[in-house]
């Protein structure tokens, strides 16, 4: 497995570090105060490759807390709200785009 830290880091806009929480797989984001947060609003925003690399390294070191950390794009709305940067990240934040069979 290539460690995320060995991968080339290229970012084109504001980004966050996201992963899945080890105990239950829930989507989490790395916060500025070095926690895993479930709310995207609490994610640390990085804007250039060196900062992104540092955040990723710090986050990936917490292997017990969360797995598969990577850098994901976000959009910042005019009012400052942080939004997922693509459909995949939107689905990760919001959950499946369908109604679950069990709640029909």
């Amino acid at each position: 497995m290539t460690s995320p830290l060995q991968q080339k880091i290229k970012i084109t806009g504001p980004s966050v570090v996201t992963a899945n929480r080890t105990i239950d797989g829930v989507v989490v984001y790395r916060s500025a105060d070095q926690r895993w947060a479930t709310d995207l609003a609490e994610a640390a925003i990085v804007r250039d490759a060196p900062t992104a690399r540092a955040l990723l390294a710090e986050a990936a070191a917490d292997d017990v807390g969360a797995v598969g950390a990577y850098i994901a794009p976000v959009l910042i709305a005019a009012d400052g709200t942080v939004l997922p940067g693509n459909l995949r990240e939107q689905i990760r934040r919001d959950g499946v785009s369908i109604t679950l069979p069990s709640v029909r």
Partner: peptide, 17 residues
């Protein structure tokens, strides 16, 4: 752990195992 969980049918998907 990954190879061990994979031997027990456990994958990681977008939102959960």
């Amino acid at each position: 752990f990954k190879p061990l969980r994979l031997m027990n049918g456990v994958y990681l998907q977008l939102h959960a195992y």
